[in-house]
Each structure stands twice: as structure tokens, then as C-alpha cells.
């Protein structure tokens, strides 16, 4: 690993000053599980690491009227075990429990994972179907960006220079909606998924009233698949409708070929796992 300078500011204001001072030469670090590997492999170069770990308050998980607020420095294990998350966003507790291994979840953070923007990560599809928002804070002020508008391309996000992701705001999961997350891991359980699907649905008297579907590892970013949602919303629930809707995924995804499979194989698996997720969430399983 190339050497670098290390800064552990005690406040967000101090972190912003360091970002302003060092510009492109600085990298923010949260848990460091991804960044340290990338530094070791020279995939990322930084003259200055600015650690957020000493800034108080960034790890908090609390409830407000607009939803569950999860601090960017909350560890994945915090989310997995939080009674608040289990009660108000059970899908997230379930999804974070399935990331990598407990050793990684003890260290990796919610915010670090999101800004890392690896398209094969587990949480983004779930955050997408929950319509989560991100609070981005800069020296000049702050803005809220829907997760849906945050992922721009492979490892690229809408985060601007000088901005820090401070929290994720998750609207509460309504009791009437069912949600599911499926990850296809033919190699090992702690691997990144070959494809993954999150779905959330509400059914009233046999009619699908709400449907949200998002895929991971199937394109340069995690993405909502509105074609599938529109094909089912307002329609009577049936196996035939689910099969037709799931088939639409094939044209919406653009998987990258890698050692987990060819692009064609992943496209086929995206259809299969979308169908299974839809069946599960619509009670057809």
C-alpha cells in the first residue's frame, strides 16, 4: 500500500475543512472494509484519508415522523440487530443480515457501502424498493437525494466534491405491504450475489395495489424495474401475470460478464429470480 496522511476529525465541520483543503487528493473513510482493499490493490489512490469514525452522532439509528433515520456510520451489524429497524423496516434488517460475513458486518458501515456503489451489493435494491433518501451535507448546506437518483454508473454516484453522506432516511414499511429479498449465490453464501431482487407489494382482494421491484448485480447500478411494476400494479394477481411481468426484466437489465457468469446467463437468472420474488411477495409461492 502506498503511504498516505491520515486525519480523524472530531466534527463534520472539521471534515469539510479537510475536504476543501485537499480536494481530489482526499478520500473519506468510514468502516474502511472496501476502501482498504482498494488501496491495497492500488485501485484507489489517496494522499489523504479522512476518517469519519470519530465524529459523534453519525452512528445513531432513530425514528422520526418522516421515517427511520440510519446514521451513515451505523455498522451493518447495527442495522441487522436494531429493534427499531426490525420493527419499522424489517426488509432492511433481513437484507443487512445477509451481507458478507459477520466479521465484515461488524466493521462495514451503511453509508460507506452506499457511496462505494458496487452494483452487486445487497442493500441498494432494498433501499430502492423502500424509497429511501440520502442526506448529503456539504459546507454550503445540505440536500436530500432519493436513492433512486443516487447511483449514476459503475461505482459512480451523485455525491459531489465536498459532500458527506450523513444519514439514510427510510420511510416506514407499512404493515399491509409484503417485502422480500432474494439473492442468487451459487458459489458461497458470503459471496456477492450473481443477481439479486428486492420486491415490495400490497395486495387487496386479489388485486395488486402496489408493486416495487429492484435488481442488484444486473446492470452497472442497482435499479428499479418500472416495466415490471407497471405490468402488475392494478392487475389481478395470477401466475400468468407474474410470468409475463418477470419476462420483461430481460430487456431492462445489462449485466456484466464476470466469473459469476456470462451476461446471457445473468439475464436469464434475473428473470427467474424476479419471478420467484414476485411469487413470494404476492403470496403465490
Amino acid at each position: 500500500m502506498r503511504d498516505f496522511s491520515y486525519h480523524a476529525p472530531a466534527s463534520l465541520a472539521e471534515a469539510h475543512s479537510l475536504l476543501a483543503q485537499y480536494g481530489d487528493a482526499a478520500r473519506l473513510m468510514a468502516g474502511g472494509t472496501a476502501l482498504t482493499v482498494m488501496l491495497k490493490q492500488s485501485l484507489v489512490q489517496a494522499d489523504h484519508l479522512v476518517s469519519l469514525q470519530r465524529i459523534p452522532g453519525l452512528r445513531r439509528i432513530h425514528l422520526q415522523s418522516d421515517g427511520l433515520h440510519i446514521g451513515a456510520l451505523a455498522r451493518l451489524r447495527d442495522v441487522e440487530t436494531s429493534p427499531l429497524v426490525k420493527e419499522h423496516a424489517p426488509l432492511l434488517a433481513e437484507v443487512y443480515r445477509q451481507v458478507a460475513t459477520v466479521r465484515i458486518r461488524n466493521q462495514a458501515t451503511v453509508g460507506g457501502g452506499i457511496v462505494h456503489a458496487d452494483p452487486a451489493q445487497d442493500p441498494p435494491p432494498a433501499l430502492l424498493v423502500l424509497d429511501a433518501r440520502l442526506r448529503l451535507v456539504s459546507r454550503a448546506g445540505q440536500r436530500e437525494v432519493p436513492v433512486r437518483e443516487f447511483f449514476l454508473d459503475y461505482y459512480e454516484t451523485a455525491l459531489r466534491p465536498g459532500e458527506v453522506l450523513t444519514e439514510v432516511i427510510v420511510p416506514l414499511q407499512t404493515k399491509h405491504a409484503r417485502a422480500i429479498y432474494l439473492r442468487y449465490t451459487p458459489r458461497t453464501q458470503d459471496d456477492y450475489p450473481t443477481v439479486s431482487v428486492a420486491a415490495l407489494a400490497r395486495v387487496e382482494r386479489g388485486v395488486c395495489r402496489e408493486m416495487r421491484v429492484a435488481l442488484g448485480a444486473a446492470a452497472p447500478t442497482a435499479l428499479r424495474i418500472t416495466a415490471v411494476e407497471e405490468a402488475l400494479r392494478g392487475k389481478r394477481v395470477s401466475q400468468a401475470a407474474v410470468r409475463r411481468a418477470a419476462a420483461l426484466v430481460a430487456e431492462q437489465v445489462s449485466p456484466l460478464e464476470d466469473f459469476r457468469g456470462s451476461a446471457d446467463y445473468k439475464r436469464d437468472m434475473a428473470v427467474v429470480f424476479t419471478r420467484r420474488a414476485l411469487e413470494g411477495v404476492l403470496g403465490l409461492g
Binding site: 491520515y6 480523524a8 482498504t36 484519508l49 461488524n106 466493521q107
Partner: peptide, 14 residues
């Protein structure tokens, strides 16, 4: 907590 010491910087463990 169990952590991977190969991807933890010593300065992080201060």
C-alpha cells in the same frame, strides 16, 4: 467484535 485485521488500519484501532 470480530474484525478482519488485514483490512483494518492500525490508526483505526486507536
Amino acid at each position: 467484535r470480530i474484525v478482519a485485521s488485514c483490512i483494518t488500519l492500525a490508526v483505526q484501532a486507536d
